[in-house]
Amino acid sequence: MAQPPPAAVIETRGLSKRYRGGQLAVDGLDLAVPRGSVFGFLGPNGSGKTTTIRMLLGLIDATEGTISVLGEPIPSGARRVLPRVGALIEGPALYGFLSGRGNLHRYDAADPSADPRTRRARVERALERVGLAAAAGKKAKAYSLGMKQRLGIAAALLQPRELLVLDEPTNGLDPQGMREIRSLVRALAEDGTTVFLSSHLLDEIEQVCSHTAVMNRGRLVTQGTVAEMSADARGRLTVTTPDGAEAARVLKEHGVADLTVTGDEVTGELPPEAARRNEPPSEGARGPGSPGAGPGPDLADLNTALVRSGVRVRGFGVTRASLEDVFVSLTGEGFDVAG
């Protein structure tokens, strides 16, 4: 690298897209994807994720705002940037009458920066990486959904890429395939490739992503590291006790908010400082969400206070919210797709 690489691999400023019907699909998006991150891009159906991805890749023009990918403006710099970007957009698209291998040859020929002399070797390598080497000679129309998905990912891996944009890469894959793709994503990230990953599978984002952003109704609701986002999801304190009313009173005195008493269970939101202190170290956020926080001093104090007031405590603990809870709290419970 001759020049210091820009800190953000993808950066958008006030990015908006209004479709001809007048519908505002993306509204004032300020996205910053740091170099080397695995960036989880979340949002319910119809929230503008795909429109954003298409704008990032120069497939559709922004109505307003600017985009920079790998330091180049999009769409004007697309021809210089896109050879360094691999993409899977809204599922794979293949020539059914060509073999899997033929499809990759076709896509590679479309890239003017791809050297035809190394094409054969690169195609075989990409097929191997996604586990399709054995089925490469079959016509693509005979492929299962999972195989098509793998071939789509292989097309994104034909050249060494600096950025991979993967729109729901594990869609249609069996659990084994999902694990393979996730470990492939991790391996690519370790090699220094920035991965921009959109997914509905929140545990997938929690497992592989270092950063995340959430969209809802065309707007960016939040973005940051996964650790920060999980930390925002303050755990809820749950006390199991036959003395519900008394417990609630004591907890309220100690700053626990949003108290609800149902049966013999009292739940409430811990005050922010207490929650942070009781949170496991942020590195843990990369692994699967750990239920319950370690015993911090505040929790111990709370428990002591309860017992001192004569509350009979049967159970006491913090249930840490999963990313899913955060997601739902940010985007709303509603099942209906935003119109």
Binding site: L57, A78, L82, P83, I89, A93, Y107, D108, A110, D111
Partner: peptide, 18 residues
Amino acid sequence: NAGTLRYLLVAPAGRTRL
């Protein structure tokens, strides 16, 4: 229709060239 156009364009084939 087949969706292959988007992959040709991000390859990038270049619109004029394609």
